[in-house]
Amino acid sequence: MIKIILLAAFAVIGAVYMASELGALRQPKGADPARPRLAESDGAVTLQADADGHFRVDATIGGRRVPMLVDTGATVVALSFEQGEALGLVSGGDRFDARVTTANGGVRAKRVVLRDVRIGSVKVLDVPAVVLTRGAMNENLLGMSFLGRLRRVETARDRLTLER
């Protein structure tokens, strides 16, 4: 019985090791697996899905890096309160008089217009967005107020191509 348990333990350890090695093979040398991968060509940007199948990207808003989750189900770009505060879009005394519906239910938000949003070489000006109340959301969403202004948004397997 002990031999079977040891054999099973070695099999599990071997499987975990092989999975980590295969994952390392898919990442370019020196790449940070936590950072989204982005490739550019001919005025288009192609994003690689993360391990969960989501497309995450570091956008640039007003010259500042903002981590975002691409969400075609979001009507507008949606920012957390903390991100909106860091970008100078909101402060603690602002009125959050818009009502938006999220996957977690209805929340209050403040409407804003982002001067520019850039993903690599793809740039859109004057993007409508909302900043949600403190604690309403952890991730920033790259919604249709940005995506809908692109010439092409195309998904193929684990890749998403954005073209202006």
Rank of each mutant, 00 (worst) to 15 (best):
I13M: 11
E163D: 13
H54A: 10
L125C: 00
N104I: 09
V122T: 04
I13H: 04
D94P: 03
R149Q: 15
T102C: 07
G43H: 09
R65E: 10
R115T: 13
A86Y: 01
Q27D: 15
I13K: 01
G88P: 02
D52W: 10
V90F: 05
E154G: 11
V16Q: 04
L47I: 06
F96Q: 01
F146I: 10
E139A: 14
A59C: 01
I61D: 03
E163K: 13
K110D: 10
G14N: 05
S145L: 10
Y17L: 14
D116C: 08
P128C: 14
G53H: 05
T102M: 11
Y17M: 13
A136R: 02
T155K: 08
R95D: 12
R35L: 15
S121P: 13
V130S: 06
F146Y: 13
G23V: 05
R115S: 13
Q83E: 10
R37V: 07
R56L: 03
A19M: 09
G148S: 08
L79F: 01
V113S: 13
D52Q: 15
V112R: 05
V112C: 12
F96T: 05
A136E: 04
A49Q: 05
V112Q: 10
V153P: 02
R65W: 04
V117E: 04
P128V: 09
V76S: 09
L141T: 04
V90I: 11
A74P: 00
D50M: 07
V90A: 06
A51S: 13
R108P: 03
F81C: 05
A19Y: 09
L47D: 03
R35G: 10
T75G: 08
D71M: 00
V45R: 00
A78R: 08
V66W: 02
G120N: 09
R111G: 15
R164P: 12
D116T: 14
A49N: 03
D42I: 00
M18N: 11
V45I: 05
T101C: 01
V76E: 07
D158T: 12
G92E: 05
E40V: 14
A19S: 11
M1K: 12
G135T: 12
F146A: 06
G88V: 00
G43E: 02
L25R: 15
I2K: 14
A8Q: 08
E154N: 12
V124L: 11
E139C: 00
E40K: 09
R118Q: 13
L147H: 07
N138H: 10
L125K: 14
L22D: 07
Q48W: 04
F146P: 03
A49I: 05
R65L: 12
T102W: 09
A15S: 14
P33S: 07
L79I: 08
A74R: 03
P28N: 09
R26D: 13
R164V: 08
T60E: 13
I2W: 11
V153D: 00
A9D: 11
G135C: 06
V76M: 07
G92C: 00
R118Y: 04
D42A: 14
G14R: 11
L141A: 03
